[in-house]
């Protein structure tokens, strides 16, 4: 059975900054051990993958202006936020663009 989009089970904030650094803040149940992320600029979708290649879509609509920046990021830092709103240690994974993933 396909898992629910992450945005339906967690509080999520996908962040990019001026230097195209991408961070996913998440709050809620512990995440699976995701190994990489894939961004599909054409459909503006971001999906996380486990080592076995199992996908979990974020379920966030990503506006064009944001997606242009995200398309230039090559890594994604996953940072959990605790109930007490403390940031956990970042876990950095590769962020692939769909075109490069299948080229």
């Amino acid at each position: 059975m396909q898992e629910l989009p992450l945005a339906q089970t967690h509080e999520l904030e996908l962040i990019v900054d001026r230097r195209n650094r991408a961070v996913l803040l998440h709050r809620g149940p512990e995440l699976e051990d995701y190994l990489w992320a894939q961004f599909d600029p054409e459909h503006n979708g971001l999906t996380l993958f486990t080592e076995k290649g199992e996908p979990r879509n974020l379920g966030l609509a990503i506006p064009k202006s944001f997606s242009d920046k995200l398309a230039r990021a090559s890594t994604l830092k996953l940072i959990s936020v605790s109930e007490r709103l403390h940031a956990g240690r970042p876990r950095q994974i590769s962020l692939l663009q769909t075109t490069e993933a299948f080229s």
Binding site: L25, I79, A87, R89
Partner: peptide
């Protein structure tokens, strides 16, 4: 630390459900 990484972001822009 996660906090430090977040503090060092420049002009952060976000999408999400929060």
């Amino acid at each position: 630390s996660g906090y430090q990484v977040l503090r060092e972001l420049e002009g952060p822009e976000s999408v999400g459900n929060t």
